[in-house]
Computed example of a mutant assay.
Amino acid sequence: MDAVTAGRMLDERAREVDRRLARLRDDEDSLRHDRADATADDEHDPEGSTLSGEWAQVDALRRGAEAERAEILAARERVASGTFGVCENCGAPIGDARLEARPFARRCIVCAV
């Protein structure tokens, strides 16, 4: 895969992650607002999930998206240095199909297993 194609894929993936992060931050703000409401006694509601449970889920999803964003930035650096698409473990080329699925992949499929 050439650097231009790789850059486009990474840019597209970064935009997707940025949109996901924006939604998750909105969800966190909403939960923060709900938690501040002193009348919200969700801990004793047997019918629904708790705000704490929802908070933990949103927090985990946000941290995962932030980690993916960091991987995308690292992949952009590999594009700039000419090492994008080369397995960090064995030095073999990373297959185009793998890079299309995970454009920030650092290892070939054999080394990733």
Rank of each mutant, 00 (worst) to 15 (best):
A97F: 05
A3R: 11
D2E: 11
I94G: 05
A3N: 04
G85S: 07
A70Q: 07
T39D: 15
G64Y: 01
R8V: 10
A3C: 01
L61G: 06
S30K: 13
E12F: 11
G95Y: 01
R15S: 12
D11F: 02
L73I: 00
A74P: 05
G48W: 00
A97Q: 06
R32Q: 14
R19C: 05
E77M: 10
G48C: 01
E66Y: 09
R107P: 00
G7K: 03
R107C: 00
D27L: 15
P103K: 05
E28L: 15
A36P: 00
E68Y: 03
L99S: 13
L10C: 07
R13H: 14
L24V: 14
A75P: 03
L10Y: 04
T83V: 04
Q57Y: 12
R13M: 14
E28T: 09
R106L: 13
E68S: 04
A75H: 01
G53N: 14
A67Q: 09
E68N: 00
R63T: 15
E16D: 15
A105G: 06
R32I: 08
D45A: 06
R8P: 00
V17F: 10
C108R: 03
V58Q: 03
R8M: 06
E68V: 13
A40D: 02
D11N: 08
F84E: 02
V4M: 07
G85N: 07
R78V: 03
T39S: 12
A22E: 13
D37N: 15
S49L: 09
C108L: 03
C111L: 05
R25E: 15
R69L: 06
R62V: 09
D29E: 07
G95C: 00
D11V: 00
A56L: 13
I94S: 04
S30C: 06
R32L: 15
D41E: 14
L24M: 12
R106K: 14
A36K: 01
R19W: 08
L31G: 09
D41A: 08
R32K: 13
W55S: 14
L10N: 03
R78L: 08
A70S: 08
D34M: 10
E43Q: 11
I94R: 04
A97R: 13
E43N: 10
E43R: 14
A75G: 05
D96E: 15
F104Y: 14
D45W: 01
R23G: 11
L73N: 01
A75E: 02
A70P: 00
D2S: 08
G82V: 07
R8G: 08
A105R: 12
T83K: 08
E16F: 09
C87P: 08
G95V: 01
